[in-house]
Design a protein around this nucleic acid. Structure first.
Lengths: 224, 224
DNA sequence: TAATAATGTTAGATTAGTCTAAATATAAAG
DNA sequence: CTTTATATTTAGACTAATCTAACATTATTA
């Protein structure tokens, strides 16, 4: 199950980039320049690395063609995502970092090599299913337990849902959420949709009713 | 207060090695081959790095002479030690790693760059003064709060002391400690010293009396 | 104190990751 | 279906960290 070879930080970062870029389209592939943009490097550097990753059978790639992860490569990438998200939960829940402060540090922590560390961390955190942005945390075996998430704006009138994350993680937005007492796990029922401006009347915790803007609803991720 | 330049993992490791090696003698210096041994690298590699660290004014060094940290270099080294030991406390106290399992992972974690992370971690851990091996944790400003530690064998008859660490951190020894209920913070009173074999009669928690070997007493660090 | 041993440095090579400039292949547009 | 634009790769160079083999200096000891 564990990756056969020890990968460098750099290689891990490429795999993670390729993973998240390929998730964005139907064919699950990406290109040299997209990767270069993401990693903040130049295309020739990427080409070199692509050759190396092909050698290691972590991607499938032929020159001038688009790039896909192999099964092994995807496995590695998902495990990095797992580590990243678990660390984000730690930083947020335990060290009280704000939602928008966790990413940068998790970016470093995700490369720490120790099976045991991650297993124990996960246990310590109480086997969380989602990171502070509401993104799902893959299992130790690399399964990504994707759930169908939508934005609050798309929930039908009369339906109830539960907050699983946010799209915008600016301080302003997060502060507003805190103020109206909305966080991960909050149950929301959509009472009425106002077609004029797309705003919603919602209730929290069955009694408390309030009105929120379209912009708000576009940035709250929920599951029904 | 914070180091002006960003150092690589490798540079940090050299500074840490030079620090701990120079602490071992009166003149606070060390040599090329001692460093090579410690870092598990070859002397020529060390020579190159020494030149680089001299350039950056982190060590004072002339060729063929012995090596000392500058004030700046010592500051950096101590901050790495601080991070290392705080992480050790985290791994031991929170993630329930055994005393002898924490080192390797802390070795990686110590290089994570984030002032904030360390400050918050320290707070979260309750501002610990010592790591799981009883070594003192330097303050954020880099002060190493050294206390006078001795081995249990050197405590006088009739005197009481407190366990602050161990010299031997083998699993066998740690298991034995656990079995007789001795850990960091345990108060021990020396009742009698047997000159014949150097063994001690001691009491734990005033009532419970027991006898321990010289080997045991040589490996328990205490403060009086 | 001169010979020998131990320690340290130079020289030159290697690998990983990066770059710029030039060449080549694919895609887009007329 | 050519031409032009865009994307990608090759070539060649650079830095950091490492190595081995050869050379130089310092320390030891006979």
């Amino acid at each position: 199950m564990k990756p056969v070879v020890q990968l460098s930080f750099t290689e891990e970062n490429y795999l993670k980039a390729i993973f998240s870029l390929s998730e964005r389209n139907e064919s699950f592939d990406t290109s040299t320049s997209e990767i270069a943009d993401r990693i903040k490097t130049k295309p020739p550097t990427v080409t070199d690395m692509l050759r190396k990753l092909t050698e290691k059978k972590l991607i499938s790639y032929e020159k001038y063609k688009r790039i896909q992860l192999t099964k092994a490569g995807k496995q590695v990438a998902i495990l990095i995502v797992r580590k990243h998200r678990l660390w984000e939960v730690f930083l947020h829940d335990k060290l009280e970092f704000a939602w928008d402060e966790v990413h940068e540090v998790a970016e470093q922590l995700e490369h720490i090599q120790s099976e045991q560390l991650i297993q124990r961390l996960e246990k310590y955190l109480g086997f969380p299913q989602y990171d502070p942005h509401g993104d799902p945390i893959p299992s130790a075996s690399g399964e990504l337990n994707e759930i169908k998430r939508t934005i609050l704006s798309e929930v039908q009138e009369g339906k109830a849902c539960q907050v699983v994350g946010v799209k915008d993680s600016s301080t302003l937005f997060l502060q507003y959420l805190q103020q109206i007492n909305v966080g991960i796990g909050t149950k929301i029922k959509v009472i009425e949709k106002i077609p004029f401006d797309g705003s919603l009347k919602i209730t929290l915790k069955r009694d408390h009713q309030l009105s929120v803007s379209k912009k708000f609803c576009d940035n709250v991720l929920v599951t029904c």
